[in-house]
Design a binder for these strands. Structure first.
Ligand SMILES: NC(=O)c1ccc[n+]([C@@H]2O[C@H](COP(=O)([O-])OP(=O)(O)OC[C@H]3O[C@@H](n4cnc5c(N)ncnc54)[C@H](O)[C@@H]3O)[C@@H](O)[C@H]2O)c1
Ligand SMILES: NC(=O)c1ccc[n+]([C@@H]2O[C@H](COP(=O)([O-])OP(=O)(O)OC[C@H]3O[C@@H](n4cnc5c(N)ncnc54)[C@H](O)[C@@H]3O)[C@@H](O)[C@H]2O)c1
Lengths: 217, 217
DNA sequence: AGCCGCTTGTGAACGTGGGCACAAAGTCGC
DNA sequence: GCGACTTTGTGCCCACGTTCACAAGCGGCT
């Protein structure tokens, strides 16, 4: 199966996980790995893993497995992180501070090209070697540094406005931490992370478990 | 369709979103809402929304829509957040601080029953009215306060160990922010939030868009 | 060189979820 | 009270994703 084939959304998400797991493994000095072993480490079914990898071409060796370095290379390229990709972060409050200082960004293929906030008092503050800038400078940084991804960590009320400014500046992918539904043009991708939603899903299953016990009693 | 029916995972996730959107709307004084309007606000298809709600029973009024308060009540109950549910947070570093201070927790049905860290220097520190406690006290708090959900915000290396302690203490749902695959018993649910994975998924689509342009040129 | 055992890559079956389209059921105006 | 209009609830079908199972392929051992 060659490169040009459409890769399912679910597969893309797992590829990112495989890449992370391979990162830990190759530190361990392992040079090849079987689908079974990698699948275990990633917490998925081995057939699924093989099918996922088959979308990238077939470069495993039957009877042996996959060469770790080739695999990493292949997945990185597919995900577009074989060289660092630039992101901007808007909203440097509680959450924004944590994100700005987070090393996992860089080690997994991203570079923070700028921090932005609307609050004058925050501007100029230095976090992890970067200065917080005014919103007015957003467009220039996005253009200058070829930023394609924007992260929103402002309050929900400001999210749509910030989103619009990011899109106007040329950003075509947005990761939104604010609990708000964003409206964007067709060519822009949005992913959202809502902590409360995650907890509520867990809560739902707790509810179920409790109900199950009731029946047993 | 009555209560006992199995609710699809995808529906549960959306119910949580509907609940959030209803929160903003009922502040607006609206007493009823049509599936069309709510679907728009939540960014989904109206047929899908109606099907989702139908799993909770049929309590809409044809020709009118749904009574906002009834709807909120119904979804809250289904998700098990009609009264506050207790959670503990382990790992009060950069991310943990932000989470501990986050108001969206409480307003969406959760109460932080305890903050825990392995670092002696962090113990005793007060955040949002709660003191950081030693890991040794974890089990007691979980039991005492009927905590069912644990949030892990420690480094990846410590995640499995922390997870094991949470499970041993009686926690049956875990939200994991550490980039690590957790192994848990069957009766325990795990959800993970991995920022880098989210960014890599966006990056993949950027890659695609760029490839599309190449073809055009 | 040939055979054996291991692992990949994938066809086919199955299950879940999404969306259309419409009948059923209610409201509102007259 | 009746008819026109609105909106729900859902049957049906299609697309996507998961899992099983196995033939094909490769390395290593004799
Ligand atoms: N803190 C958490 O742990 C957490 C967890 C999940 C989700 N969230 C969400 O993330 C978002 C940020 O949370 P927080 O706790 O960091 O809030 P915060 O209030 O501490 O920070 C928000 C920051 O955004 C800035 N801001 C406000 N309006 C802006 C605008 N129009 N343009 C640019 N910057 C603007 C503010 O100046 C502030 O610095 C919120 O939507 C929150 O719901 C937070
Ligand atoms: N900071 C971010 O924005 C961010 C974003 C995404 C994911 N993450 C992940 O979240 C986790 C925490 O990130 P962070 O930046 O807050 O790290 P951090 O180092 O600032 O905080 C980690 C905390 O965990 C505590 N800890 C370590 N081992 C422990 C143990 N065995 N038991 C209990 N507590 C222990 C430490 O004392 C520290 O307080 C990491 O896994 C990181 O990869 C962080």
């Amino acid at each position: 199966m060659s490169e040009g084939r459409a890769i399912p959304e679910a597969t893309v998400a797992r590829l990112a996980v495989y890449l992370r797991v391979l990162g830990s493994l190759s530190d361990g000095g392992l040079s090849t790995i079987s689908s079974e072993a990698l699948a275990n480490a990633a917490g998925v079914n081995s057939a699924k893993l093989r099918k996922d990898l088959s979308y990238l071409g077939s470069f495993g060796t039957r009877g042996v497995g996959y060469v770790v370095e080739v695999l990493r290379e292949r997945i990185s390229t597919c995900l577009g992180v074989s060289e660092h990709r630039s992101v901007v972060l808007v909203g440097v409050g509680n959450l924004g501070h944590a994100l700005a200082g987070y090393g996992g960004f860089r080690s997994r293929g991203f570079r923070i090209a700028g921090l932005f906030d609307a609050d004058r008092r925050r501007i100029g503050e230095e976090i992890a070697g970067l200065c917080v800038q005014a919103m007015a400078e957003l467009a220039e940084v996005v253009t200058q540094e070829s930023v394609s991804i924007g992260v929103i960590a402002t309050p929900a009320e400001a999210a749509q406005e910030v989103c619009d400014r990011l899109v106007a500046a040329g950003v075509t992918s947005i990761l939104n931490f604010a609990p708000a539904v964003l409206v964007v043009p067709d060519n822009v991708d949005v992913r959202k992370v809502d902590l409360a939603v995650e907890l509520q899903i867990l809560s739902f299953h707790e509810q179920r478990k409790a109900a199950g016990l009731q029946v047993v009693l």
